[in-house]
Amino acid sequence: MSNIPTNLRFAKSHEWVLDNGDGTVTVGISDHAQELLGDVVFVEIPEEGREVEAGEEFSLVESVKAASDVYSPVSGEIIAINELLEEAPETINEDPYGEAWLAKIKLSDADALNALMDAATYSDLIAQSE
């Protein structure tokens, strides 16, 4: 069973969102997503300063099995990127909810977080797909 922290929100496309409490969020891919991908060998880091819309592809994660687009779960401006993943993409497998965050986004609409799933709803989604 995947690890699903209760302090995060989730998109149906398996991205997680941490509300930083200051109008910004931290975004990454879920433990479930990294398990499906297998050993991650490359991460395309999003561009800092880029404006993204919720549901828009903004990153790519490649594993030995597949390549998967990563979609922005919220709309806003990318204000920070995790350059560690360029040198150590395997961090996604090792610490998907910690060191392996992809981007920090300044929200264009704080209410967007309400459209995302809580941990229990995300857990149900995963259970239905297994």
Rank of each mutant, 00 (worst) to 15 (best):
L8T: 01
A67W: 13
I45K: 03
E51D: 06
D31G: 10
T121H: 05
G28K: 11
V52K: 11
Y97Q: 07
L107E: 04
H14P: 00
E130V: 04
V43P: 05
W16V: 06
K12Q: 13
Y97P: 05
E56R: 15
L37K: 07
E57V: 15
K106E: 15
L113M: 03
N82F: 14
E83C: 11
I45L: 04
N114L: 00
A33M: 12
S59P: 04
L85F: 14
G98W: 14
E62K: 00
A67T: 14
G49S: 11
S75K: 08
Q128D: 14
V52R: 13
V61K: 10
T6D: 08
S129G: 04
V43L: 01
D111K: 15
D111V: 08
A127M: 08
S123Q: 15
L113K: 04
A66D: 07
V70S: 06
G21V: 03
I79L: 02
T26A: 01
Y71H: 14
Q128T: 14
S2D: 01
D19Q: 03
A11W: 00
I79Q: 02
T6C: 00
R50K: 15
M117K: 07
Y97A: 09
L85E: 12
N82E: 12
M117Y: 06
E94C: 02
L116I: 00
Q34H: 09
E86T: 13
V17K: 12
T24R: 06
S72E: 04
E90M: 11
L116N: 00
D31P: 07
S75G: 15
I126E: 02
E83Y: 09
K104N: 14
I105V: 15
D69P: 02
A88Q: 13
G98R: 13
E47K: 15
A120D: 12
M117Q: 10
T26M: 00
N114K: 02
I4G: 00
G98C: 11
L37M: 12
L36Y: 00
N3R: 08
V17I: 15
A103Y: 08
A80W: 12
E94L: 11
D118E: 00
S2C: 03
A11M: 03
I4F: 01
F42T: 00
D22M: 12
L36G: 12
P5Y: 10
H14D: 02
Y71L: 15
F42N: 00
G98N: 13
A110R: 10
E56G: 10
T91V: 14
V52A: 07
